[in-house]
């Protein structure tokens, strides 16, 4: 689900909590130069590794659940719009099926099929979103089922 960037971030977090310093920050034998540029000596580099790591872990802890609510609020409406569209399609098929389904097998079958294709995990599938969880302009099963509903509605107006 997460983008490569995010996965990397999660891996770093996970590793930093369970492994030794070298797992995240590398070791002196990683092939890095003994000195960075002309000014950073081995001692300074060691100092950087130790204190950056401590700061990094504290930085993660300091922002434990910060931003969760903002993310939730920012996408809630988009989820609501998608859920409502799905509901409208299913509601339309449902009532037409109840009123005319005895004589229309296709309508009854479509209601069953729509329930499968419009499940939350299919509509909110990663393939419909970019790495920042924004909706992409790719075909969504809702578009297809809105057209199918319109066709049924035309026949029973």
């Amino acid at each position: 689900m997460p983008s490569d960037k995010k996965r990397t971030s999660r891996q770093v977090i996970s590793m930093s909590m369970s492994s030794s310093d070298d797992d995240i920050w590398g070791s002196e034998s990683d092939g890095a130069p003994e000195a960075i540029g002309s000014t950073e000596t081995v001692e300074v580099r060691k100092l950087r590794l130790i204190h950056s790591k401590r700061g990094y872990l504290d930085g993660i802890s300091s922002s434990k659940e910060e931003n969760l609510q903002k993310g939730f609020d920012d996408s809630f409406e988009q989820g609501a719009v998608l859920g409502k569209r799905v509901g409208k399609v299913l509601g339309g098929l449902y009532i037409l099926g109840m009123l005319h389904g005895r004589f229309d097998e296709k309508l009854t079958d479509d209601l069953m099929e729509a329930q499968k294709e419009l499940k939350i995990n299919k509509v909110l599938s990663t393939k419909h979103f970019d790495e920042n969880c924004n909706l992409l302009g790719v075909p969504n099963p809702i578009d297809k089922w809105e057209k199918i509903l319109t066709e049924h509605q035309k026949r029973y107006l």
Binding site: P2, E65, E66, K70, F72, D73, S75, Q78, G79
Partner: peptide, 13 residues
């Protein structure tokens, strides 16, 4: 956290 919140917001909405 922001992305995790967005994912959850989409689901709940």
């Amino acid at each position: 956290n922001y992305l995790e919140g967005k994912q959850y917001g989409l689901q709940v909405g």
